[in-house]
Nucleic acid binder design. Structure first.
Lengths: 223, 223
DNA sequence: TCACTGTCAAGAGCACTGCTCTCTATTTTG
DNA sequence: CAAAATAGAGAGCAGTGCTCTTGACAGTGA
């Protein structure tokens, strides 16, 4: 009984995966804007209406791809981390690994770090996968002796920083937490500017500049 | 003769502007994704095909809006600059003014700093307006005594920095130029993260964090 | 074994899109 | 005034997301 039901569920799971794979393939070719449900169905040899049994709308398909993309870039960041050795080296490796993934999958990156596609509704499913890269960076700092940094921190930000220290379990002052958030912002700001063409005319091959930023931000957070 | 020709050309210029205005209005409601040429034409009481006499394609209309948006955010940055007084105050004012504009026009901001809409072809018309915010920041530093910063700079980046010093006419070492580029990246990275919802769960009302970032980056570049 | 139930793909169809073409009215120009 | 350029209107094409209905099939309880 479970076997038969599983047979069906397995077929369903497989087809769901095939749809996502094909959609991701087309995403890489025509971007999110050009992704067409009908084209995906056509390529899979099925009729477009059948696809709605698996994804109730185009946006939901995109959301599924978004979650996958967050996990993929998060995994890339985690795998780039050697896990041991000098924290500074680990930090630089994570930065590089994150950028490498983004450059290899520009459309998927744009999907998650570009303009929000649907009506501004970032589903709840995305918040945990979205944090993976940031957590990889935090992890480097958790068992590290940071040179503590002083600095005035406004009450609102101080409160937010203290909440974060509890959630993340890191031992660092508010100024360090704020700097970590700035580094996180810098990481994705630089990748986005690079991929979206904002560096054209200034640091167009941005490799050297990106590596430089990674080093400076490592120092900036106290590494 | 010029008067008669002007009559038509003026009508044309006016209608071109009206189309852009209406398109911008709809952009604010439904975003770039939902912007429809037919809807714009409908609202203006004309037929959709007539609109093609003014913009040869939807992408070209969007490109016109992109140029306008770059100029608008650039002007916002310039107007926020008091133009005199302590450089640090000017720097902070420009950061704030830029963010304020972005928060007031999120869809227009997404248009220029989100995922590139057309097939990755950022038209040449956009590069000059796109630099206005950065130039406003540079302007603050030009007649300022910066405490010079040392630091190793890789050859590629050093060459790019030296090209920039010539183009911009600023007197600063490569390390300072690199830091300026990082600050520029930080500014738009923070605005994008804020508007695109990436700060949800960490520094959600990002006002305090943004102000903090502005101050820290001012110090970072030597102000 | 047989009817029942839930699942599936298929097809037709709706309202919409960007865009092209032709036709006609108007304006500008020589 | 006649010719040329420009304007808008309308029809139409190929494509889209999405809905609804229809018929086939698989698994279940009597």
């Amino acid at each position: 009984m479970t076997a038969t039901r599983t047979a069906r569920e397995r077929a369903r799971a497989e087809l769901t995966q095939e749809i996502k794979d094909e959609a991701r393939r087309q995403l890489g070719e025509v971007g999110a804007h050009g992704l067409s449900l009908r084209a995906v169905a056509r390529e899979l040899g099925m009729v477009s209406s059948a696809l709605y049994r698996y994804f109730p709308s185009r946006d939901r398909l995109l959301t599924a791809l978004i979650v996958d993309a967050y996990n993929a870039i998060g995994e890339a960041a985690e795998k780039a981390d050697p896990g041991q050795g000098p924290p500074r080296e680990r930090w630089l490796a994570i930065w590089q690994g994150t950028r490498d993934w983004a450059r290899a999958h520009p459309h998927e990156y744009a999907l998650i770090y570009g303009s929000p596609i649907p009506g501004y509704a970032a589903p709840q499913d995305t918040v945990v996968p979205a944090a993976r890269v940031a957590l990889a960076l935090v992890k480097v700092l958790t068992h590290t002796e940071l040179r503590d940094i002083d600095g005035e921190v406004a009450p609102e930000l101080r409160a937010q920083a203290e909440t974060l220290t509890k959630v993340l379990g890191i031992i660092a002052g508010p100024e360090t937490v704020a700097r970590l958030l700035m580094a996180w912002t810098q990481l994705f700001g630089a990748i986005s500017f690079d991929l979206f063409g904002q560096y054209v005319g200034s640091v167009d091959p941005a490799d050297s500049f990106f590596a430089h930023s990674a080093r400076r931000m490592a120092e900036f957070v106290g590494l």
